[in-house]
């Protein structure tokens, strides 16, 4: 939140959560790529998903 009354300190506080989650997200993504998750997503996404189009 912008808060001129409390200045940058409050802004800093409001950034802790999204930045912390972003760091966690990067860790998860790297861990996922290392265990082959990205490849699994690719394998699923390059084939027609019959469920998605309503015939599976």
């Amino acid at each position: 939140m912008i808060s001129p009354k409390t200045g940058d300190r409050k802004r800093g506080h409001s950034l802790i959560l999204p930045l912390g989650l972003l760091v966690l997200a990067v860790v998860f993504i790297v861990a996922g790529v290392m265990q082959g998750d990205a490849l699994a997503v690719l394998r699923k996404a390059v084939l027609i998903c019959y469920e998605c189009i309503g015939i599976g």
């Binding site: 999204p18 989650l21 997200a25 990067v26 861990a31 998750d37 699994a40």
Partner: peptide, 22 residues
């Protein structure tokens, strides 16, 4: 990604969604 739940947790998907959200 739930198909592989017996072998691994879906870190890549959870991380991606966390990143989009944050």
């Amino acid at each position: 990604s739930l198909n592989d739940l017996d072998r691994k947790l879906p870190f890549y998907l959870v991380g991606t969604l966390l990143a989009f959200g944050a």
